Simulated scan of single mutants.
Amino acid sequence: MIVMVNMMYSDTHFKGNDVVGYAAMIILFSLIFFGVKNHRDKQLGGYISFGKAFKMGSLIALVGATLYVVVWLFYYYLFVPDFIDVYTDYVLTTCAPEDIETKTAQMADFKEMYKNPLFVILITYSEVLPVGLVVALVSALLLKRKQFEKSLS
């Protein structure tokens, strides 16, 4: 995240690479798969239900997302407190002339909301947590394995 923010912040065109950002998130969240698989194989005898796997994956995603949010809060408030101003300037220079009034109002509203740390926390969670939950869902689907008891006839 810090690398991506620095790339965007220092580029006069404010370009980051969304593909690289989401790829990095998916790679990091792939640890969910390995965490659930390890727990299933070593602690649960090779069996886990979809619900239990999804719950465990979701908790891992929540921990990862929380770390992301905490890092962003420190980085934003300590190192790039004018990030929203820089971003607003970029958005306004790239929008169509007929949209400038509307976009100016939208960005002013966003800047005002971003003054509230709770909003910063919620918007930051919304960037990363959905990706983690999708990876948790896919992991649960791939790793679920039910134990069938043999009945004695």
Rank of each mutant, 00 (worst) to 15 (best):
133 L>M: 13
133 L>P: 13
14 F>P: 07
44 L>W: 03
94 T>L: 00
44 L>T: 04
29 F>D: 07
50 F>G: 06
90 Y>E: 13
127 E>T: 14
19 V>E: 00
52 K>V: 12
131 V>W: 09
77 Y>I: 02
127 E>S: 14
120 V>A: 07
88 T>V: 08
23 A>N: 01
12 T>H: 11
18 D>M: 07
15 K>Q: 11
129 L>F: 15
131 V>N: 05
113 M>S: 13
132 G>M: 10
35 G>H: 00
132 G>I: 02
99 D>S: 14
149 E>K: 15
24 A>F: 01
74 F>L: 04
87 Y>Q: 08
48 I>F: 04
34 F>N: 03
126 S>Y: 09
34 F>V: 14
108 A>W: 05
116 N>I: 11
150 K>L: 15
149 E>I: 13
143 L>D: 01
111 K>D: 12
78 L>C: 03
8 M>L: 05
115 K>P: 00
37 K>A: 11
106 Q>E: 15
28 L>H: 04
101 E>L: 12
24 A>D: 00
58 S>G: 15
148 F>V: 14
59 L>S: 08
46 G>S: 11
121 I>E: 01
76 Y>P: 03
113 M>W: 08
147 Q>N: 14
23 A>M: 05
127 E>M: 12
61 A>R: 06
110 F>R: 02
140 A>H: 02
64 G>M: 15
5 V>A: 05
74 F>M: 00
151 S>Q: 10
13 H>C: 02
87 Y>D: 05
24 A>T: 14
40 R>W: 05
46 G>A: 10
152 L>Q: 08
71 V>T: 08
6 N>T: 02
17 N>P: 01
98 E>L: 03
127 E>L: 11
84 I>Q: 03
55 K>C: 12
28 L>N: 13
18 D>V: 08
3 V>T: 03
17 N>C: 07
152 L>V: 13
53 A>R: 01
123 I>T: 14
57 G>A: 03
94 T>P: 02
105 A>R: 12
63 V>H: 05
43 Q>N: 15
55 K>A: 15
31 L>V: 12
127 E>G: 11
67 L>R: 02
62 L>F: 15
125 Y>G: 12
35 G>M: 03
62 L>Q: 10
43 Q>Y: 09
82 D>W: 06
10 S>R: 12
11 D>N: 15
28 L>K: 02
101 E>I: 11
150 K>Y: 12
10 S>G: 03
81 P>T: 01
50 F>M: 08
54 F>L: 13
74 F>I: 06
51 G>I: 11
40 R>M: 14
151 S>F: 11
118 L>C: 04
